[in-house]
Amino acid sequence: MQRVNMIMAESPGLITICLLGYLLSAECTVFLDHENANKILNRPKRYNSGKLEEFVQGNLERECMEEKCSFEEAREVFENTERTTEFWKQYVDGDQCESNPCLNGGSCKDDINSYECWCPFGFEGKNCELDVTCNIKNGRCEQFCKNSADNKVVCSCTEGYRLAENQKSCEPAVPFPCGRVSVSQTSKLTRAETVFPDVDYVNSTEAETILDNITQSTQSFNDFTRVVGGEDAKPGQFPWQVVLNGKVDAFCGGSIVNEKWIVTAAHCVETGVKITVVAGEHNIEETEHTEQKRNVIRIIPHHNYNAAINKYNHDIALLELDEPLVLNSYVTPICIADKEYTNIFLKFGSGYVSGWGRVFHKGRSALVLQYLRVPLVDRATCLRSTKFTIYNNMFCAGFHEGGRDSCQGDSGGPHVTEVEGTSFLTGIISWGEECAMKGKYGIYTKVSRYVNWIKEKTKLT
């Protein structure tokens, strides 16, 4: 034993070699072989497995989906700052455009905790909710729209109204504003409101030439003092309507412009014939205590009207009353817009006519005020429907199939267009061939041609 100890002390290297040989010859039971080890760690190889990531292109799944990435790591994937920024906006807080917040056709661009709407022409605001041009839906104005110097929408209202708090709607500024039905039992019968379409306001006024200088022999019209197929109006439903009495009662109609003036057809009036105007009328054979009678003290036909040349060209006249009318729910003026808007309103496509005229061709006159909704007829169809001249200051309205029309005794009465609950004068009943005849239409004086003249002559002093 002493000898062994001496050998170990003198030859430590020998001992180490012996131990190493023993270990190498022993069977290893701690580690699995290569094949079995792979069965336990069965993990798919990654895209760049075996390579240094710093030297390969980034992978979106590896960089940002398996674990949260930084902007720089995302930049490695896209290799483009702009594309990385677009991805980053949604990656950080989701897609803010998912709810489609942009209105009126706006395009949404996502941002971090926010979004941006790219608005089409005519709109602005956070969600493109603000109209900035009158060309689109009248700028959301209830009545009139004008573009300011910086191309912003400025709404306005006709006389007797003021802008509401929203700067879009119009509200009454006087007790009985024009064009409004205020009798409670008839307010439910107000005709369907007309909503502004998209309009090209630059070209809204037709490029028409008034044929002022045409000389033409007097034409022989049949029954051209021209509501057939209409309905009984309720008291106060058309408070701007008046009836004219002269040699015979209810020979023509008219509309209240203001307390002192009536507008009617020029062919209705004769110099030297006494005319009485009755406002607030409903049943011409009954006294309903809503009527107001006034005498006409002055007749002003349009300066281009000449019955000797043509009885229905420039067929418009103004009547001055001896005493002002007292405005109330049964006696209310009709609204008159400017030339541009009167023309736009007419193009809405349908209007209402009213009167006490004959209820059928050569038949009896109506006792109760009649009204009828009539569609506008395109000019080409209008011209083809008659052998008589249709001037540019006239328009056609009615039904091709016949059966409904204005008729004798309705002449001078109103053709009105309702705009968001307020009625505007767009025409004056003038003439036609018979009444409600198939293929024939009622012919009306186009008020847009005469609004400046009306307003100039009827100013209240």
Rank of each mutant, 00 (worst) to 15 (best):
Y450R: 01
S220L: 13
S217F: 11
T458Q: 03
G105D: 06
I136C: 05
L19H: 02
R46G: 02
K126C: 06
T422M: 04
T29N: 13
R62K: 03
V377R: 05
E66W: 03
P333E: 02
N295S: 11
A250T: 10
N36D: 15
F123N: 05
F221A: 14
N313E: 09
D223A: 11
V227C: 09
V183S: 12
S107L: 08
D150C: 04
K126S: 12
L32K: 13
K459L: 10
N258G: 04
N203P: 08
S70M: 05
D223G: 09
L321Q: 01
T422L: 05
L60P: 03
C97I: 03
D212C: 08
F121V: 13
S70Y: 03
T426L: 02
V269N: 01
N166V: 02
S156K: 09
T186V: 14
L460Q: 13
G357W: 07
N147G: 13
N113G: 09
S411M: 15
K168N: 07
E66P: 00
K68L: 07
E208G: 06
N222R: 11
S11F: 13
K39V: 07
D110N: 14
G439M: 05
T186L: 06
K446Q: 06
F348L: 08
F176Y: 11
K438M: 09
W118R: 14
P324N: 05
G236A: 07
P324I: 03
I299Y: 09
E456Y: 08
K438L: 11
A173L: 10
K293V: 14
N304D: 11
S329Q: 08
P239K: 01
K362L: 06
D131Q: 14
K459I: 11
G125Y: 03
F71M: 07
E286T: 08
I284Y: 08
R404C: 13
S448F: 02
L103S: 12
I428F: 05
F123W: 14
N295G: 07
I40L: 12
G413M: 11
L425W: 00
K459Q: 15
T417A: 05
E124P: 04
N166I: 01
E259I: 05
A207N: 15
E82H: 05
G106M: 03
T287V: 15
E288H: 08
V199W: 12
P197L: 10
V257H: 00
A337Y: 00
A366V: 07
D212E: 15
S11D: 06
Y391Q: 15
E231T: 11
C145I: 02
N393K: 03
V368P: 08
E340V: 10
W453H: 00
L52H: 08
E129A: 07
T81P: 13
A266R: 03
Y441K: 03
F360R: 15
A207V: 09
K168P: 02
E54M: 01
H34W: 11
H415A: 02
